[in-house]
Computed example of a mutant assay.
Amino acid sequence: MTTPSHRRRSRPRRPTALVSAVAVTAVALVVSLAVAFRPGGGTADVREAAKPVAGTRVSGSPTSGAPSASASPKPSASATNSASPTARASASRSAAAAASARAKATTAAPPKTSATGSLAGRIRPGTTYTGVATSYDIGNGDGACSYGPTSDVMTAAMNTADYETSKACGAFVAVHAGGKSITVRITNECPAPCQAGQLDLSQQAFAKLAPLSAGRIQITWNLLSPDTSDKISIRYKTGSSQYWCGVQAIGHRNPLARLEVRAGGSWVRLARTEYNYFLSESGTGCGGAIRLTDIYGEQLTVEGIAVKPDAVQSTGVQFARR
């Protein structure tokens, strides 16, 4: 649009035209006042006069209706172009803040754990098993789980089927017979002729249920998640180094489902042996961070455990009671 000074330079004033324009304006004003103050006139006529002409684009937000949940509302091109730079910058900051809040809400959600032990093998929580109990002399308390000598006599050997390549190691089970109950920890394996469901109890544990002379008794048993103040410990196997290592977890409240080591920014799951060590044949992750997962899906990450063969190193952490 040209400026008034430019019009003055290009076209001289015409007093007669100006007078005519003033006259027309005055007439229009008189007509408007007459319409406004006539009986029945007023606001309805004003609203009617305010209606946009067909084909005219009207900017503004609707007063009803919600935006689609699948997409963020986008301003029209005309609204964006006509807004001032300050308004556009403010809108951009608001959109960025909203997107950031949505991202934080998504990533801040804690991981869920299974209450039913979805990572369990043959021995599952909430299940009652039926079998027989026998007894054996545990000697110094060591067994197939490779925990080493112990003064704890309330232990048992699990039949090979339910031992499941050492997955039963460290599990606490409640054993019931003849109205009596005891709690034992699995530290050993009972090979054939032990059958599925059978427990070979320490003589001390068996004697709490029946006389040793009974030989075999009918039992039921189930998995426990006991109350304990013990913390989990880590031990590297004899011969372990940065080039090869075997890693073992000791004292876990719940059965252990996985043991992983961190290498190259990712977690590597180690294979479990029947003697209850997790092996890294190539040395991957030996001496690095360790992640433990129980059968309920709870994960504990442990750092600062050096490769010290046969040394029992406490982690200071424990799985939650279930």
Results as ranks from 00 to 15, higher is better:
210 A>W: 14
187 T>H: 04
314 S>C: 05
249 A>G: 05
85 P>I: 02
135 S>N: 05
222 N>D: 10
54 A>E: 15
270 L>Y: 12
189 E>C: 10
155 T>F: 11
289 A>G: 01
60 G>E: 09
7 R>V: 04
151 S>T: 08
1 M>N: 09
187 T>I: 10
84 S>G: 12
62 P>H: 07
194 C>S: 13
189 E>F: 02
76 S>V: 03
310 D>G: 01
33 L>H: 09
1 M>E: 10
19 V>R: 15
267 W>F: 11
210 A>V: 02
175 V>M: 08
117 G>E: 07
142 D>L: 02
217 I>R: 14
178 G>H: 04
151 S>R: 06
247 V>R: 11
310 D>Q: 07
306 A>H: 08
128 T>I: 05
311 A>Q: 13
286 C>A: 11
271 A>Y: 01
101 A>C: 00
141 G>E: 05
92 S>K: 12
138 I>Q: 09
22 V>P: 00
1 M>C: 08
225 S>K: 08
114 S>H: 13
126 G>L: 11
259 L>C: 08
113 T>A: 13
264 G>S: 07
65 G>D: 03
34 A>K: 07
141 G>H: 11
243 Y>T: 01
88 R>F: 12
127 T>R: 15
168 A>N: 02
78 S>K: 10
241 S>T: 11
7 R>W: 15
242 Q>D: 14
179 G>P: 03
215 G>W: 15
101 A>R: 05
204 Q>W: 04
11 R>H: 14
316 G>S: 06
94 S>P: 00
